[in-house]
């Protein structure tokens, strides 16, 4: 009924219905029910909600922790809460962004999705985390960079809309890894020299031969295991994967753009989320179209670096050199 008024009623009815819905407990977890209307909560105020799927696949599951609630006894719940908070803080404090949609969207996460589920994903509305099968992968909330990665997929959906295939898909993956690792580095207060530049280091099960799922510092070296095989990521454009598997190698070729970020950050120095992260963020927000290529992303980051720090700045030169070193330009 309320939903109907919001979509079809006149303005007075609309405002009444909106206020009623906002005040209603039922609204929690029902963002989908009101279609495309986006309500900002008070700007700049973080709102998190963590749900437990209890090893089923119904979403969002049972609400177990809301903004301001004390910690749960369930470490996955707390990891999802803290990790989404650290991600929100990075984007707000450093880049002035008001949540995923830049309009105050509540951060919803579901943990314990399905049984032994080896995955984490952003489904267009919320984050979803599996417990991992245990033998190969641990629970997916255990690495804070995975949480930052998933929320960045949400940001990309609202801004650049990078199509999840071929080079634009690999850029979608790379920007998610970049901001995932920046969330981790900032939470540990690490400079570029102190950071490990790994993605999912804590997710690999104990017996797996490897250090992480991906490495921005040394793509192709994260693991080499009898069951999982060898990390397939190239770090140079000439070695890019050109087949059709994995949506055109989105998790493979992301290594090239990941390494470009690493090289730029090392040359610029300091905390990577400050200057280098800002260049990448503004590029993602304003400088990419849905079918962007690696070359276009390179040109856009160089343009942004020049605009922010000057055409003759070391920052601009560092970004240009990074993309040259990985063979994109």
């Amino acid at each position: 009924m309320l939903d109907h008024i919001i979509r079809h009623g006149d303005e007075e009815n609309y405002n009444w219905a909106l206020e009623t819905l906002k005040a209603s407990e039922q609204f929690r977890g029902r963002r989908k029910a009101i279609g495309n209307i986006s309500f900002a909560v008070s700007p700049g105020q973080m709102k998190r909600a963590i749900y437990d799927a209890k090893n089923g696949t119904s979403l969002p599951g049972v609400l177990v922790r809301e903004e301001g609630d004390p910690p749960s006894e369930d470490e996955a719940v707390n990891e999802a809460y803290d990790g989404s908070g650290a991600t929100y803080d990075l984007f707000r404090d450093m880049y002035g962004r008001n949540s995923i949609d830049d309009r105050g969207l509540r951060l919803d996460s579901t943990v314990h999705y399905d049984v032994g589920y080896d995955n984490a994903f952003w489904n267009g509305d919320q984050m979803i985390y599996g417990d991992g099968g245990g033998r190969l992968f641990n629970r997916f909330t255990v690495s804070i960079d995975v949480i930052g990665h998933e929320l960045t997929h949400g940001i990309i959906q609202y801004d650049a809309g990078l199509i999840y295939r071929d080079e634009s898909g690999a850029l979608n993956e790379s920007f998610s890894d970049v901001f995932g690792t920046l969330v981790k580095q900032r939470s540990l207060n690490q400079t570029v020299d102190q950071a490990d530049w790994l993605i999912g280091a804590e997710i690999l099960a104990q017996d797996v031969q490897g250090v992480a799922l991906r490495s921005l510092k040394a793509p192709g070296t994260a693991y080499n295991d009898p069951v999982l095989g060898k990390d397939p990521q190239p770090k140079h454009y000439s070695r890019r994967y050109q087949g059709t598997a994995n949506d055109g190698g989105v998790h493979i070729n992301s290594g090239i753009a990941n390494h470009a970020f690493y090289l730029a950050a090392m040359a610029i120095g300091g905390y990577a989320w400050e200057k280098t992260g800002k260049i990448w963020y503004l590029t993602l927000r304003d400088g990419l179209r849905p079918r962007a290529s690696f070359k276009q992303a390179a040109e856009s980051t160089i343009f942004v670096a020049g605009s922010l720090y000057g055409q003759d700045s070391n920052e601009r030169k560092a970004v240009q050199s990074a993309w040259q070193q990985v063979g994109v330009i």
């Binding site: 080896d118 995955n119 799922l213 069951v227 994995n246 998790h251 493979i252």
Partner: peptide, 11 residues
């Protein structure tokens, strides 16, 4: 199985 966060194919 391909894709997923890990991007690691299993077969």
């Amino acid at each position: 199985r391909t894709g997923g966060f890990t991007g690691i194919p299993l077969n």
